[in-house]
Each structure stands twice: as C-alpha cells, then as structure tokens.
Amino acid sequence: MAGDVYRDRIIISNDTRFLSLAREFTQRMIRASTLSRTEESKIILAVDEAVTNIIEHGYENQKDGTIEMEIEAGQDQFRVIIRDSGKEFDPSSIKDPDMDDHVKKGKKKGLGIFLMRQIMDEVKYVFKEGVQNELILVKNLKKKPEEKAPSA
C-alpha cells in the first residue's frame, strides 16, 4: 500500500460477548482512515460477520481460543486481517443465499458471508496448516479527484 499506513491489532477471546470489542476496534480504525461515515456502519457489519463466523464455525462455539484482528488503514486500502486457530473454513466455498428459500424453509443462518461479499471489495482466505487461518477483508478507498493545475 502506498503512503502512510496506520496499523493496530487486538486479540479477543472466542466468545460472542466480545463482538462489541471487535466492532469498537473497527470503528476506531475507520475513523482514523479516510473512509466516509456512510461506509463505516457497513464495514463494521462485515467485520462482525467475519468474527461471528469464526466463533460459530471455526471454533464451533467452544469458549477457548482467541481471534487476532489486525487493521491497516492506508491511503489506498482499508485492510482487516483476522486470524484464528479454529477449524478450516473457506468462505469462497459458500454460495450466495436464495432469500425466498431462506424464508420458505425458516433458515436463519448462512447470510454473513454474503454480506461480507456485498460490502467489501475483496474477501480472501488463507489456510496455513498447523498454524492458523487468515481472513483478509479489503475495502479500496476512493481517491479524491486531483486538483487541476491552474491554466496559464
């Protein structure tokens, strides 16, 4: 990433009660970036969905284990890297939901990955066997139009 990058990291316990910490950390980093307030709530939601998936599927709701969140707020990109040591879980293997089918069958789950894809420009997953899973969420930042040089 070009230019200055503001980077910070937190580690949270694998428990839904700490989702609020994940959201607050994301909000703090967004406010240190050039992202607009209209993007803020959506990106917080995408991160919440990612962390929730790790807690519910990666760690299968076991209370031990930790989740590391690292956020890089750069001039070109806002990158969220989420690491865990739970079960391998590749979001790209999940198809987008058919909402009518969800309603018809009373299905409540399986919407988080769809939201992550809707909101972020990139959702990448890296599985490092015996080490950790890494989920990378990227939002590209819109460049401000360059000022035109005054005409001679």
């Binding site: 709530s41 939601l45 929730t52 969800h102 309603v103 009373g106 299905k107 919407l111 939201l115």
Partner: peptide, 17 residues
C-alpha cells in the same frame, strides 16, 4: 442501534411461520 445477519435471521426464520 445495530443489527447483524444473526439478528435479521431471527425475523427471516419466523416470518414464514
């Protein structure tokens, strides 16, 4: 103040019934 897909899922799961 806030809803995630887990919250919206409650309403999706219940509206059919």
């Amino acid at each position: 103040d806030y809803i995630s897909s887990a919250g919206a899922g409650v309403f999706i799961g219940a509206i059919g019934t």
